[in-house]
Simulated assay, not measured.
Amino acid sequence: MLEEYGDEITLKSFSHTYLTEPQGEIKDQPWFTNQIIKLEIDAEIWAPSGFLSTCTAIEAKMGRQRQEPGGPRPLDMDIIAWGDLELESDFLTLPHPRAKERAFVLIPLKEVEPDFVFPDGTHIDEALNAIDYRMEDNKIWQD
């Protein structure tokens, strides 16, 4: 899908995929597959809000219907960070407001960016050490 954006968006790296038990209230559903991809995006062409709109359109093309939060879905694309930008609007908060609480974000993020530091100065290792989770092969459990 990135080919249609030419030089505007470049895939830099991507993590392995990880299986995560459903979080939140809806536990009776298939496990989620999570992956982090690192993109280089031309900031003169793309703003975070426009990129999020494109992600939402891709989700819809893949059959996502936004019904119940945390429910099953074929695809869920989130922007975790946009460089060191901090942003809070009605539809987008950067960095992602729950990224530091989620092993299924932090583990693959560390894989593609081992020295990642959140804009507040929190190193990815600090964030991982602050949460309770366990891993077995590519499966992640978190309470």
Rank of each mutant, 00 (worst) to 15 (best):
D42V: 02
Q65H: 10
F116Q: 12
V112E: 07
F14C: 05
F116M: 04
G71H: 01
E40T: 10
L106P: 01
I45R: 15
D76H: 06
P114T: 12
Y133F: 15
K38S: 13
A130K: 13
E111A: 14
A127N: 14
A81N: 07
A57E: 14
I131Y: 00
H16C: 01
T93C: 07
Q65V: 14
D137S: 15
A127C: 01
A43Y: 09
F118E: 06
S13H: 00
S15N: 02
E40L: 15
P74L: 09
F91N: 12
D90H: 07
I26T: 12
R134H: 06
D7Y: 05
M1K: 00
S13N: 08
L94H: 00
M77E: 01
P72F: 10
Q65K: 15
P108W: 02
A47V: 06
D90S: 15
S89I: 08
W46G: 05
V117T: 12
F118G: 06
D125Y: 01
Q35W: 12
F14D: 03
D125F: 00
W141M: 07
C55Y: 08
E88V: 12
L106Q: 07
S49P: 03
Q142V: 10
W46C: 07
I79Q: 11
Q29P: 05
E21G: 02
L94Y: 01
W82N: 03
I9C: 08
G50W: 02
Q142P: 07
F91D: 13
D42C: 08
